[in-house]
């Protein structure tokens, strides 16, 4: 985020279009590169949520599964806020992926797909 973006935000103006372009591109490229359709991604999202829900109580509304891309590597990122574990305790720091706990201690993050170059036909 640049100084201009912050000022625009404070003034409730539309952000400069370059940042919008960047964000839209990153999203569309993640999909282009993975060759996954939104339907398939949605199905996968629901199944992942089901599996996780067997072990911990999660907020089904808030859960997000998305494709993120950086340096031509695409990762499937699931961000699933945990309400509580099924035995009633919230003990995230031990049970959950430790990498990112300092950023989002109340959420579970799991990077599923290791990485994959885009596979054009």
């Amino acid at each position: 985020m640049t100084l201009r973006d912050i000022i625009n935000k404070l003034l409730r103006r539309q952000p400069a279009s370059a940042s919008t372009a960047r964000e839209r591109l990153q999203l569309v490229l993640a999909h282009d590169r993975s060759d996954l359709s939104t339907d398939l991604l949605d199905k996968m999202r629901r199944e992942i949520l089901e599996v996780v829900a067997r072990y911990v109580e999660i907020d089904m509304e808030e859960g997000a599964v998305s494709l993120e891309t950086e340096d031509r590597m695409t990762a499937l990122v699931a961000n699933l806020p945990i309400k509580r574990t099924l035995n009633g305790q919230i003990k995230l720091n031990e049970t959950v992926n430790q990498e990112k706990k300092e950023e989002k201690p109340e959420e579970m993050e799991a990077d599923f797909i290791d990485s994959k170059e885009s596979t054009p036909n």
Partner: peptide, 18 residues
């Protein structure tokens, strides 16, 4: 520096890499 050109370039880069 436009979204459509960058997107298409990305597709081509994928093909060149493979």
């Amino acid at each position: 520096p436009e979204v459509s050109a960058v997107r298409d370039a990305d597709r081509v880069i994928g093909l060149l890499n493979t």
